[in-house]
C-alpha cells in the first residue's frame, strides 16, 4: 500500500511514518532533501552569525555590524521553525499538508528578515510578504481542485496512473510554491539576503529551493 506507483522517478520507498491520514515517507530523493534541510537547520542552531563588514565611503574606514542579542535570538527561532517546516515539507505524503508547510516556509522566510532595521531590506521583505500571501491562493486552490477532481489528497493515490490531475492544478501548484518560496522570482529575495545574520538568512534560500525541488518531484509523478 505504501509503495510509489512509479518508483523509477525517485526510487523505492525506504521508510514511512503514519500520522493518521497524513503519511510521511522517505524515498532516496526525499531522504537527500531531508538530510540537507537537517544539516542547515543544525547549522542555524549551532553557528553564530557573521559580523558583516561595511565600508564607509569616502575614506579607508570600515566597520562591522553586530546583531543585537535579542534580534539574533528571534532570527534563530524563525530560522529553526523554517528548517523544521522544510524538513516536514520535503517528506510529507499529503498534498494539503505540503501546501500548509509551504505557506509556513513563506511566513518564516519573511520573519527571518523582518527584524532587520534596514529600509531597503524591509521594503523587499514586504513585497515578498505580499507575494507569499497572494501565493496561498494558487497553492490552496491547486490542492482544492485536486481534491475535487480526484477525490483524494494522498500523494500515493494521486501518483497512480489511473488518477489524472488537471493541468491547471499542476500549474497552480508550481506557481504557488514559487510564490511562497519565491524560488525563481529572484529580485526581492536577492535583496533580502543582504540582511546580516548568515546562517539564518541562508535558511531562506535553503527552504525555498528544497520546497521547489519537492514540488517538481510531485508534479512529474502526478
Amino acid at each position: 500500500m505504501y509503495n510509489l506507483p512509479s518508483p523509477q522517478i525517485e526510487g523505492e520507498i525506504l521508510a514511512y511514518i503514519p500520522f493518521g491520514d497524513i503519511v510521511y515517507y522517505f524515498s532516496p530523493y526525499t531522504l537527500v532533501l531531508f538530510i540537507f534541510a537537517l544539516t542547515f537547520t543544525a547549522l542555524a542552531i549551532l553557528s553564530r552569525p557573521e559580523k558583516q563588514v561595511d565600508i564607509a565611503f569616502g575614506g579607508d574606514a570600515y566597520y562591522t555590524k553586530e546583531i543585537p542579542e535579542k534580534q539574533m535570538r528571534f532570527q534563530r527561532f524563525m530560522a529553526i521553525s523554517c528548517g523544521l517546516a522544510t524538513m516536514a515539507g520535503v517528506t510529507t505524503g499529503d498534498i494539503f499538508n505540503f501546501t500548509l508547510l509551504t505557506a509556513m516556509v513563506g511566513i518564516c522566510n519573511i520573519g527571518i528578515v523582518a527584524s532587520v532595521k534596514n529600509k531597503h531590506v524591509l521594503d523587499n521583505a514586504y513585497e515578498y510578504g505580499i507575494l507569499a500571501m497572494i501565493g496561498t491562493l494558487p497553492l490552496f486552490g491547486a490542492a482544492a481542485i485536486i481534491l475535487a477532481t480526484t477525490g483524494t489528497l494522498s500523494l500515493w493515490e494521486i501518483f497512480t496512473p489511473a488518477v489524472s490531475v488537471p493541468v491547471i492544478a499542476k500549474a497552480l501548484l508550481v506557481i504557488g510554491v514559487i510564490g511562497e518560496g519565491m524560488a525563481p522570482v529572484y529580485v526581492a529575495k536577492a535583496e533580502i539576503t543582504r540582511a546580516p545574520g548568515a546562517p539564518y538568512v541562508l535558511m531562506i534560500h535553503v527552504s525555498s529551493l528544497l520546497m521547489f525541488l519537492r514540488v517538481v518531484e510531485i508534479i512529474i509523478s502526478m
Binding site: D54, V201, H205, V206
Partner: peptide, 13 residues
C-alpha cells in the same frame, strides 16, 4: 545553496 552560503558566511562585502 552552498555558493550562497560561501559568500554569506565570511562577512566580507
Amino acid at each position: 545553496i552552498t555558493e550562497h552560503g560561501l559568500g554569506l558566511s565570511s562577512g566580507s562585502p
